[in-house]
């Protein structure tokens, strides 16, 4: 029996040593995805509007659509993507170990995450910010007046830290009640166990609709933090980061040029005059844009045909929640979405 145990442990050790060597053969994530024929995308499975399961078991949401867009660009088929639901705590380990190719899970871009966690951030697809929701009957209109109020917040998030920072800066005392689950937070608020809740404004807006009387609650016109949310790739694979970044820019650029899911097929090489659109959709002779990224000539066309431009993605997923476009508008309309030139 001891001999057997020795042999088994030797075998396990050998496998553990050899397998990483075999895995060394892979080049970059782009090649890995192409060889696999499938993109693996880490998402949230329970965030309204951003990632959840639809009635027929299909994935839905804003972040999910970006996963489909990347699959369309790389593999020419928006359905060749496997969504892997992740908790906040495991999203970065999953990215580092190569379990997922890209992380699109309402992740805020911060300095420490960019440096310490081995993550490379792509352009934000959604600019969020932390705000406050409270009962209208309290008659509070500014942060200062919140002094002495009880404020509900979810545990372990940056939200909790931001609240502490803000109240300290204002020199007011508030009592914060920490909840483990988002569901419980809003239920308790609805039952009157706290005067206000603080969270990302997108969440506040969407959750307000689920309260018993949505009109009895208002959202303060202040934003105490910046929460730029966007796709994340593993640190060090610049080629792959380029691909994901330019897929994001493609959705911005299409909205700037008025290219939609419906009309993208009407752009023909003969009839299209605008040279930037020609380059963008791969209608010119050279077809260099896709080639430089390691993608097909018509990658951007595939993206728009699959999920539409940024405005369409937003309207499909977030407008039904009552979210206004806010700063998430093209720069030409005074928003923050700015596609780098396709040249």
């Amino acid at each position: 029996m001891r001999k057997l145990l020795f042999r088994v442990s030797a075998l396990v050790l050998a496998i553990a040593l050899v397998v990483p060597l075999l895995a060394e053969g892979e080049k970059g994530i782009l090649d890995k995805v192409k060889n696999r024929g499938r993109l693996i995308c880490g998402v949230n499975k329970e965030l309204p509007g951003f990632g959840f399961l639809g009635q027929n078991g299909e994935w839905k949401g804003f972040d999910v659509d970006y996963g489909r867009a990347i699959a369309a660009a790389v593999l020419g088929d928006p359905n060749k993507v496997e969504f892997r639901p992740l908790k906040a705590a495991e999203r970065f380990p999953a990215l580092q170990t190569g379990e997922i190719d890209v992380l699109i899970r309402n992740t805020t871009w911060t300095l420490t995450r960019d440096t310490d966690l081995g993550a490379d951030f792509c352009p934000p697809t959604f600019y969020d910010g932390q705000g406050f929701m409270l009962r209208k009957e309290l008659g509070i209109t500014s942060l200062k007046e919140l002094a002495g109020a009880t404020i509900g917040v979810t545990a372990g998030s940056t939200t909790e830290l931001n609240l502490a920072d803000t109240t300290r800066a204002l020199g007011i005392e508030v009592e914060s009640i920490v909840f483990e689950e988002t569901e419980t937070l809003y239920q308790s608020y609805d039952q009157g166990r706290c005067d206000a809740v603080t969270s990302d404004k997108s969440q506040l807006l969407s959750r307000r609709q689920s309260l018993k009387d949505p009109d009895a609650h208002s959202i303060l016109d202040v934003t105490i933090s910046k929460e730029p949310l966007g796709p994340v790739t593993v640190h060090g694979d610049n080629k792959w980061n380029d691909v994901v970044s330019w897929v994001v820019y493609a959705t911005f650029s299409a909205e700037e040029h008025g290219i939609t899911q419906a009309n993208v097929s009407t752009f023909k090489p003969e009839s299209t005059e605008n040279p930037e659109i020609k380059r963008f959709l791969g209608l010119d002779e050279s077809g260099g844009m896709g080639e430089k990224l390691g993608l097909s000539k018509d990658w951007a066309r595939q993206v728009i045909a699959a999920v539409g431009n940024y405005g369409e993605i937003f309207d499909r997923n977030l407008t039904p929640l009552g979210l206004p476009r806010g700063v998430n508008k093209p720069w030409t309309q005074g928003g923050l979405l700015y596609a780098m030139p396709f040249r």
């Binding site: 329970e46 639901p85 239920q187 039904p320």
Partner: peptide, 23 residues
Amino acid sequence: IGLIDLLGVARSVIANPDWFGLQ
């Protein structure tokens, strides 16, 4: 952990805007 078993489905259904507030 992130798999969508019976409870996972329940949590995802609650996140569907069509069924808000039906925990």
